[in-house]
Amino acid sequence: MIITDTHTHLYSDQFDDDRPEVIQRAIDSGVSRFFIPAIDSSYTQSMLELEAEFSENIFLMMGLHPTHVKENVEDELALVKEWIEKRKFYAIGEIGIDLYWDKTYLKQQKHAFRTQIQWAKEKNMPINIHCRNAFDEIFEILEEEKAEDLFGIFHCFTGNLEQAKQAVSLNMKLGIGGVVTFKNGKINKFLNEIQLSEIVLETDAPYLAPTPYRGKRNESSYLTQIIDKLVDIYGITPEEIAEITTQNSKDVFGI
């Protein structure tokens, strides 16, 4: 059984003391493919080192995270562009809009999101979307930029059924992680109305640990908790969940 974690920050300093053990636990539980989103240029070296150490299992993305869009947005975007021109990445991400913490740079966030979408279309790469308190703003840009060559993953999807259907209609898979196990997570109430062919698994480790680990450091081995919840929702076996969602990840990332 091959399980794919389509979104995990394994380079986070929260794993500095036991990263090899964390990765081995995940592999032992069946999770052997880890897709790594970027944040900003300050994390690039850590990502490259992670890839070098675990080259058979680690697949990197490149992009500028919306919460790291500041006054130097053009400098950061230039570095993203430089990197995607000189080596292989499997997606542009995570990119998007986040209005939970601060709305100061909304204009710059929109600009960075649109710019990186356009680069993804030019290079036929998927995007990995971060959205927090910004569904209207995200969908406005996606609708304007939509095209057959725009596709990807709506990371950590927390919207309603209507928003889920809209995301799917825009060639986005839904990234499902720990939130689906939360009592107040809400998405478990309607997820069975979305075909499993439109879903990929993720942890967002070290964040958003599933029940019963909620509030603790998340790690990729906990994807088995997500699978158990999806077994309840879809009424099929863990092996089928793993096979279908891993194939969905291959369809997105091309590997």
Score class of each variant (00 low, 15 high):
residue 2 I to S: 08
residue 3 I to W: 02
residue 3 I to Y: 03
residue 5 D to Y: 06
residue 6 T to G: 09
residue 6 T to N: 11
residue 8 T to N: 12
residue 9 H to S: 03
residue 10 L to M: 01
residue 10 L to V: 00
residue 12 S to P: 04
residue 14 Q to G: 09
residue 18 D to S: 01
residue 19 R to E: 11
residue 20 P to H: 00
residue 21 E to N: 14
residue 22 V to P: 07
residue 23 I to N: 09
residue 23 I to S: 06
residue 28 D to R: 12
residue 29 S to L: 09
residue 31 V to M: 12
residue 32 S to C: 11
residue 35 F to E: 04
residue 38 A to F: 01
residue 38 A to M: 04
residue 39 I to R: 11
residue 39 I to L: 13
residue 40 D to P: 08
residue 41 S to E: 15
residue 43 Y to H: 14
residue 43 Y to I: 14
residue 44 T to N: 10
residue 44 T to P: 03
residue 45 Q to L: 14
residue 52 A to E: 15
residue 53 E to C: 05
residue 54 F to M: 00
residue 55 S to M: 07
residue 57 N to I: 03
residue 59 F to P: 01
residue 63 G to W: 03
residue 70 K to I: 08
residue 70 K to Q: 13
residue 71 E to I: 07
residue 72 N to R: 06
residue 72 N to W: 01
residue 72 N to V: 00
residue 75 D to A: 09
residue 76 E to Y: 08
residue 77 L to R: 12
residue 77 L to A: 10
residue 78 A to I: 03
residue 79 L to E: 15
residue 80 V to C: 10
residue 80 V to K: 03
residue 87 R to E: 00
residue 87 R to T: 03
residue 90 Y to V: 10
residue 96 G to Q: 04
residue 97 I to N: 04
residue 100 Y to T: 13
residue 100 Y to C: 08
residue 109 Q to H: 08
residue 110 K to T: 09
residue 111 H to W: 13
residue 111 H to T: 13
residue 112 A to Q: 11
residue 113 F to H: 13
residue 119 W to D: 06
residue 119 W to N: 01
residue 120 A to P: 01
residue 120 A to Y: 05
residue 121 K to Q: 08
residue 123 K to F: 10
residue 123 K to W: 03
residue 126 P to G: 06
residue 126 P to C: 12
residue 130 H to E: 00
residue 132 R to M: 06
residue 135 F to M: 12
residue 136 D to F: 10
residue 141 I to W: 03
residue 146 K to S: 15
residue 147 A to F: 03
residue 149 D to Q: 15
residue 150 L to T: 09
residue 153 I to R: 10
residue 154 F to V: 12
residue 156 C to G: 05
residue 157 F to C: 09
residue 165 K to W: 07
residue 166 Q to G: 06
residue 167 A to T: 05
residue 168 V to Y: 04
residue 171 N to V: 09
residue 171 N to S: 10
residue 176 I to Q: 13
residue 178 G to F: 05
residue 183 K to G: 10
residue 184 N to Y: 04
residue 184 N to H: 05
residue 186 K to C: 11
residue 188 N to T: 07
residue 189 K to I: 07
residue 189 K to E: 15
residue 195 Q to A: 15
residue 198 E to H: 13
residue 199 I to S: 14
residue 199 I to G: 14
residue 201 L to W: 02
residue 206 P to I: 08
residue 207 Y to R: 12
residue 209 A to T: 10
residue 211 T to A: 12
residue 211 T to Y: 06
residue 213 Y to G: 08
residue 213 Y to Q: 12
residue 215 G to I: 12
residue 215 G to K: 03
residue 217 R to K: 07
residue 217 R to Y: 02
residue 220 S to R: 10
residue 222 Y to S: 02
residue 222 Y to D: 01
residue 225 Q to W: 11
residue 229 K to T: 05
residue 229 K to C: 10
residue 229 K to D: 13
residue 230 L to W: 04
residue 231 V to A: 07
residue 234 Y to R: 01
residue 234 Y to P: 02
residue 234 Y to I: 02
residue 235 G to L: 00
residue 236 I to F: 05
residue 237 T to L: 03
residue 238 P to N: 04
residue 238 P to K: 00
residue 239 E to L: 14
residue 240 E to Q: 14
residue 240 E to M: 12
residue 242 A to N: 01
residue 245 T to Y: 12
residue 247 Q to G: 08
residue 248 N to H: 01
residue 248 N to Q: 00
residue 253 F to Y: 11
residue 254 G to L: 04
residue 255 I to T: 09
